[in-house]
Design a protein around this nucleic acid. Structure first.
Length: 278
DNA sequence: AATACAGCCTGGACGC
DNA sequence: TGCGTCCAGGCTGTAT
C-alpha cells in the first residue's frame, strides 16, 4: 500500500530513469475515471506535446511539473504503479493511462483496483493546499506537534491517518510509529503530553526514514503488491507490529493484538502501548 | 466546525 | 474443482 516512503521511491526511480526532460507524444486513457474530473479527450489534449519537468511530492501526492505551467497530480491510492519501459509490451488489462514519450519509451500508470487518480491542473495548490504538513519534510518541532494534537479531540490513530492533519502516513506507518512511541492507538490526541508528542514525532520520522532506505514496504499480495522500478520494497522485515497479530512482541514477548480503529485494522502491543500513561 | 462512516474496487485467501 | 464470502485500505461524499 503506497504511503509516503513508497511514493518517494517511485519519484526517485522515475527521476533516475530520466523522465524529466521527456516530451509526451501521445496519451492513451484506457479508463476514463482515472483522469477525472477531465474527460479522456480533455486530459489528452491538455498534456500532449508538453515536457516533463521536476517530480516532487506532498504527502502521498506525486506532483509532475510539466512545461506550460501544467501539472499532473498523481495519487496511487491502493494499487497504483508507474512503469517506465522501453516499449509497449503486450497490453496489460490494468494499464489505465499510457504516455508515449519522445525517446521511444512508454510511461504506464497501472492500477488494479482503479482507485488511483491522475489530475491535470494549472493550479496544484488548490489540491495540495488542503493537506497538512508533510510527515517527513515539514520543519515541525515537538512543541508545535504537541499544540496540533492538543487542538483536536480524536483517537490518535484516526488523527494520524487524516491527511489534512499530517500528510503522508497510512495504515502501516501509523501503527509502526505508535508502537515505536509506546502510545496506544485509541488514546485521545488531547491526552498526549509534550514528551509523548515529541516521541511520536521522532517515531514518525524514524519509521519513514527506515522504510525509505528500504525502498518501501511490499506485502507480497501478488497482483496488488507495491512495486517501483520493477522491484518490490524491502521494508517488511523492519515492521514491528503491522501484520503481526498473535505473534510475540519483539520488545516484551506479549502477543500483538489487532483491533479496528477508524475502520482500519490496527496492530499494537498491549504491554508496550498501555492505554493509561505509566 | 469537527467528527464518523459507507462506499468505491478487485485479487487473493479461505471454507465447503 | 469451483463457487461464495470476506478482507485489504486511501479517500470522498454525506450524515450527525
Amino acid at each position: 500500500m503506497p504511503e509516503l516512503p513508497e511514493v518517494q521511491t517511485v519519484i526517485d526511480d522515475l527521476t533516475a530513469a530520466g523522465l524529466p526532460g521527456r516530451r509526451i507524444l501521445s496519451v492513451d486513457v484506457r479508463r476514463p475515471g482515472t483522469v477525472r474530473p477531465l474527460s479522456p479527450g480533455g486530459f489528452t489534449c491538455n498534456v500532449t506535446g508538453l515536457t516533463f519537468g521536476t517530480i516532487s511530492r506532498h504527502g502521498k501526492f506525486i506532483h509532475f511539473s510539466l512545461s506550460g505551467g501544467i501539472s499532473i497530480l498523481a495519487h496511487l491510492r491502493m494499487t497504483g504503479q508507474f512503469e517506465l519501459t522501453a516499449d509497449m509490451e503486450p497490453g496489460d488489462p490494468h494499464d489505465r493511462v499510457v504516455f508515449s514519450l519522445d525517446d521511444g519509451r512508454v510511461l504506464r500508470f497501472h492500477d488494479t483496483r482503479t482507485f488511483g487518480r491522475l489530475i491535470c491542473t494549472s493550479n496544484p495548490d488548490e489540491i495540495l493546499g488542503r493537506l497538512g504538513p508533510d510527515a517527513l519534510t515539514a520543519p515541525l518541532t515537538g512543541e508545535q506537534f504537541h499544540a496540533m494534537l492538543q487542538s483536536r479531540r480524536r483517537q490518535i490513530k484516526a488523527l494520524l491517518l487524516d491527511q489534512s492533519f499530517i500528510a503522508g502516513l497510512g495504515n502501516i506507518y501509523c501503527d509502526e510509529a505508535l508502537f515505536t512511541a509506546g502510545i496506544h492507538p485509541l488514546r485521545s490526541s488531547s491526552s498526549i503530553d509534550q514528551n509523548e508528542a515529541a516521541r511520536l514525532l521522532d517515531a514518525v520520522h524514524s519509521v519513514l526514514r527506515t522504510s525509505l532506505r528500504n525502498r518501501g514496504t511490499s506485502l507480497g499480495d501478488g497482483e496488488t503488491n507495491y512495486v517501483s522500478g520493477g522491484r518490490a520494497g524491502e521494508n517488511r522485515s523492519a515492521l514491528r507490529v503491522y501484520g503481526r497479530r498473535g505473534q510475540a512482541c519483539y520488545q516484551c514477548s506479549a502477543e500483538i493484538e489487532k483491533i479496528y480503529v477508524a475502520q482500519r485494522g490496527t496492530h499494537f502491543c498491549p504491554i508496550c502501548q498501555p492505554f493509561y500513561r505509566k
